[in-house]
Write a protein that binds this DNA or RNA. Structure first.
Lengths: 234, 234
DNA sequence: AATAGAATGCCAAATATTTATCATTTAGGT
DNA sequence: ACCTAAATGATAAATATTTGGCATTCTATT
């Protein structure tokens, strides 16, 4: 699944050293959940960090009609709950098990103790949080200032550049439509127009990008702001 | 001016102790800028933190047509540049002086040294970053799942709750329209409809909220997710 | 190879939004 | 008290989007 929190966002466990990973793993305790079981509820005010250790969890909110609206899906190594520790907020999302899963639950006190003694952990958490802020901010800026077609192209480019296979994105048109807050018909129209310019190839459950540099150039020309490379190139 | 980064977001200097403020103030050097002068450019890869000490700065990007599109305005005590230090990103925005201003420029090395020795600083930065992530995420979730009218009402409520005077918001309909990515005409329609329900009173350069609890209840009923209190209530 | 479910393509009527003007109101400066 | 620039209100034609329905394509499973 495609969402604004995920793409290009590393896992906490990949950002810290083996030693720190070891120290972290010793905190709290692992809890297993069965498919669909509720792990956290929006509004709860228990403070603590949760790290997915096996399987995956679904993050979202329960909507007006009682349906679960997914914001993101977090897999092994990703963490939840920073808000409760550092932003003085209650749980902002409902979190439930997506299949069988195991989540390491770390209460506030031991986590904060480790945090205070290991600046590396602080840097890693800041790194994650700032990358997310950046993604969200860039998306919302783009949303308002770019023509939708260009914005969609830029988004696909970003997803491609952080994907395992940049030439073939696994995504549904419906997912894209949801992300942009438009109907499937509209998204179909945007995508088709990009296809007719030779930038993408629409397939079943996938979008192929035959010429990544071409797409990059096309987007760059239409946004006229320096395209941000993840690490500044020399 | 109204924007997604600002409301409810405290200043760095308010989040840390007097001692730490003092230590922070001794780093780097203060630089004065004249109105309109460029402080940072998107794409630059110089690393460092900037703290506004006098006046204010405008943060944005230079658009396709060369015009400056404002993302936010930062005043005294607010900081810029976390991305460059902790997220491995080049400058993401153009920053220019809004009137005469003074900005404390702190290079990466001394800032990181202080960061590593003072977990309080790490906590404060995380606090800021997470609050922003939260605002942006909540806004984009709401954008997709709520009827626009309800979303506008919720946004006004949030602005009111973090404003000096919750009963009277200083904002232009055009600003609101820009934030929501719609035309002034559409925003006018939404606002008028809220006015006709007795929730707000439209004025010149302002919106009055005669009955905050009423608005809160109205929004709450239509969003049906626990309204997040800034600090969890007991 | 047949089949079912999921995803995409396509279409037109209904609805919503934008664009482009112009009138009116408001606050601040002279 | 007047005048001006800025903001809001109002309107209609032009565009764009959504909704709903149905046909087609694709993939995995039988």
């Amino acid at each position: 699944m495609l969402d604004l929190l995920q793409f290009g966002s590393p896992r906490l466990t990949d950002l810290i050293s083996a030693d720190l990973n070891y120290a972290l793993a010793r905190l709290g305790r692992d809890v297993s959940y069965s498919d669909g079981q509720l792990i956290h509820s929006r509004g709860d005010d228990n403070r603590g960090i949760s790290i997915v250790r096996e399987g995956a969890v679904r993050i979202g909110v329960i909507g007006i009609d009682g349906s679960f609206i997914t914001t993101s899906i977090f897999g092994v190594g990703q963490c939840i709950g920073e808000f409760t520790l550092f932003a003085g907020l209650p749980r902002t999302h409902d979190v439930s098990a997506l299949g069988e899963c195991t989540v390491q639950q770390i209460p506030a006190a031991p986590f904060l103790a480790l945090f205070d003694s290991e600046p590396e952990l602080a840097q890693a958490l800041l790194h994650l949080s700032l990358l997310r802020t950046h993604s969200l901010l860039e998306f919302s800026d783009d949303f308002r200032r770019l023509p939708k077609q260009v914005h969609v192209a830029k988004f696909l480019l970003q997803v491609a550049e952080s994907a395992a296979d940049p030439a073939e994105l696994q995504c549904l048109q419906e997912e894209l439509a949801y992300i942009f807050g438009v109907s499937r018909v509209s998204m179909g129209k945007f995508l088709k127009s990009l296809q007719s310019e030779g930038l993408i190839l629409l397939g079943y459950r996938k979008i192929r990008i035959p010429d990544l540099p071409l797409l990059r150039a096309w987007v760059s020309q239409r946004t006229l702001v320096a395209p941000l490379a993840p690490k500044a190139r020399s």
